[in-house]
Amino acid sequence: MRVAVYLPLLLSVLAPFGARYVAERCEPRLATWLLTASAVILGAAGTVSLGLLAVAGLLRLPWLADLGHWSAPMAQRDSPAELSVSLLAGLGLGGAVVMAARMLWRRARTLAAAALEAACLPVRDGLVVVEDETPDAFALPGLPGRVVVSTGMLRTLDASEHAVLLAHERAHLTGHHYAFVALAQLGAAANPFLRPLAAAVGYTVERWADESAAAVTGDRVRVARAVGKAALAARHTRGLALGIRGLRGAGPVPRRVAALLAPRPVRRPVLTAVAVALPALAVVSGVEAVRDLHLLLEAVGAG
């Protein structure tokens, strides 16, 4: 337990250093899945580790040992956490739970409001056009979702680029990209070290939608041009166009345009294996730490 309980916390610190590399090198859909799963798993594993450290350190308290009929000397000898570490872990655990709960509440309210708004909007073939000179376009999740486009954005893009716009936004809806972003943000709320992973997921869902639009239109250069034009038109507005509500500005536009002008990304088995191995190692370490704490409780109880 002395090593296993700390390993998920260490991996949470190390994983963000590879987030951008995975986002840039992996196929966007796969990168989104990998980064989202890593954020959720590492966030959960780190929270469990904090809880285990808090409990293990509290075993050192003589009065608590008396209540549990444990051997205080044995607990003080075998516990993997000093009391000071246990107190810090307890504070971290409380903060993680509060921040995760707060994020869940805010996200649930946002999605509920979006679904209600989508249900009330007039729609034609899933598209809502609003009279607004501000260039804007976004996907509004709901049952069903809506693609909302301003007249200003329609005038900014030519007829061929309208198809790119619709394909991009519909990819956000069909791919449930808001769920990936919400899950990644949940992991980052529980563990602030994972914020780069959440930011990378925001970028990869945009790349995922870009590639979907390229597949639908069959013209990567046209998609790159539409992304660039929409971003330039929206530079003085709040957020970037071609983004799902809540995801605007998720990825630097020049990187997206450069990726579209490059050959279509391919799967990278080695990079994928490494990205899978890190959260898997965190899970194995967490399970081992829980098992070791159980054995420790049995030992101090027997003593």
Rank of each mutant, 00 (worst) to 15 (best):
A241G: 15
A171N: 01
L64Y: 12
G303Y: 13
A213I: 08
T110W: 15
G152V: 10
L59I: 09
L87P: 00
A234K: 03
A280M: 13
L11V: 10
S49V: 06
P254Y: 11
A226L: 01
L83E: 06
S49W: 03
V201Q: 05
A241N: 06
A96Q: 02
M1C: 13
F17S: 12
R20F: 15
E288K: 01
D132Q: 07
L35R: 01
L7G: 05
V223A: 02
R235Q: 14
V287C: 08
R124H: 14
A233G: 11
W105M: 11
L127K: 01
G142E: 07
T204Y: 03
V48Q: 00
R235H: 11
V290P: 01
S150W: 00
A188R: 05
A31G: 14
A56G: 09
A159C: 03
R29L: 09
L127R: 07
L83T: 12
L104R: 14
S38Q: 11
M153A: 09
A37W: 00
L11M: 05
P269S: 08
G249S: 12
P269L: 09
H294N: 12
A273Y: 11
R264V: 12
L157C: 02
D66I: 09
R207H: 10
S49N: 04
L295K: 11
A72L: 04
V257R: 12
V283M: 12
L34P: 01
L165E: 00
H294S: 14
G246W: 02
E298Q: 15
D136E: 11
A230E: 01
G46D: 04
A89K: 03
L281H: 04
V3K: 04
L140V: 08
E288H: 07
A96W: 03
A275W: 04
V48N: 00
A241K: 03
R291M: 09
L166M: 11
V147T: 05
G243S: 15
V290Y: 01
G145P: 10
P144T: 11
S71Y: 11
V48F: 07
C26T: 09
L58P: 06
A118Y: 06
L261S: 00
P144Q: 08
